[in-house]
Write a protein that binds this DNA or RNA. Structure first.
Lengths: 208, 208
DNA sequence: GGGTAATTGTCAAAAAAATAACTTGACAAA
DNA sequence: TTTGTCAAGTTATTTTTTTGACAATTACCC
């Protein structure tokens, strides 16, 4: 499959483009130029054009980008045209907050179930909480595509191993650890502690 | 103040260094070479040395880096030698999860209070929830250094404005929006929706 | 103590990313 | 038609980041 490798930097901007374009669409804006879009995101017009060019380009010279078309192209690129079934592992603080996270539904993800080694509630926001021992059986029979790791650090690697062993290919990891995973698994980390330390660093610098 | 500007790429690695070195310290490891540390983080030894060199370098040729010294240098650089008082704005799903977030305490941050425009609970994990109308008065009298924005998108900018107007210089933002803030304010965003879309993109690519 | 291996700090080269410049097609108005 | 303008797509340049190389320094062994 001869697909071009898109750099990490570009990939990280895709959601920003999508968000901005979605907003424009909701405002019934019909077209947008690279210059104007760049201003909205605080980047350069050149970068916008170069980024879109990576995916073939979907604008019209002298006119700009058609907002609806751009939105649907971006959605396809990002994969929002597909339906993902998601399970959440860990029903603690973070897991429960994620059970109520609107973003899943908004972008077409369906949260099927939650798992915990020691469930103290049997239901979060209408999502049933199962014992972790039932994980394998569940995901084998429910076409699960993606798993969220919301466990403590100590459990995260073994949970990841279990997830992968059961054929799930995408992991959203909230545990503060770099998981060891095979190349064919998609992973994305939300590292709150790292973010907090970056903020701490910036705060210190600014107050100097 | 003649301080060198540290690139964003380096800053983002600082927490990773700190985490790794802290772990080594807990294992009673006494010294570490750039080579070994690099292996732990999955980067090159050269980059480790280059990064540390930005801050003056604290290793010893032929020996390596003393773990305790490195840990304390990194803590100082990151600002963990200072105490921050924190308030959380927004007592919904995310705000409540953050009220129970262990990371604050672990890194020396003190959560003083929470605020909500319409508090439905008066206490989260022992943290008192105030009405947003009391925000100004509270932070003026409690030496608050940092605010967390855990409100819906629509409220985020005006909350940010209020935070800044009351003299708080650091913002940890969980709302899915790029806030407009002055240059002298430190900000760090946790963008769950962007992260989820990046994962969606990667999942789609990997399954091609 | 002297020789050898290890490892830093730093500089230079290479690679990657961002920005700027250029070329071309599309459209509107004359 | 023709022409001027706009803005995308593309190529070139600059800047930033990463990697590679090496002299200088130190620990350790004999």
């Amino acid at each position: 499959m001869g697909k071009k490798i898109i750099s990490e930097a570009v990939v990280k901007r895709l959601p920003k483009y999508y968000r901005a374009v979605k907003h424009l669409s909701e405002q019934n804006v019909e077209k947008i130029s690279s210059k104007h879009l760049a201003e909205l995101l605080g980047i350069t017009a050149s970068q916008v054009r170069q980024d879109f060019c990576n995916f073939g380009g979907f604008g019209q010279q002298g006119y700009g980008y058609d907002v609806e078309k751009l939105k649907s192209e971006l959605a396809t690129i990002i994969g929002l045209d597909e339906q993902y079934n998601v399970v959440i592992v860990g029903a603690g603080n973070i897991g429960r907050a994620l059970g109520g996270y609107q973003g899943f539904e908004k972008y077409g993800f369906k949260v099927q179930a939650m798992f915990d080694t020691n469930p103290i509630v049997d239901n979060v926001n209408g999502i049933k909480v199962y014992n972790m021992s039932q994980f394998g059986e569940y995901v084998q029979t429910h076409k699960t595509d993606m798993a969220v790791i919301a466990t403590p650090k100590a459990a995260a690697q073994s949970v990841a191993d279990t997830i992968i062993a059961n054929g799930i290919k995408s992991i959203w990891n909230f545990a503060p650890i770099d998981l060891r995973i095979p190349d064919d698994i998609a992973i994305e980390n939300i590292s709150m502690s790292e973010s907090l330390l970056v903020l701490s660093y910036r705060a210190k610098i600014k107050n100097k």
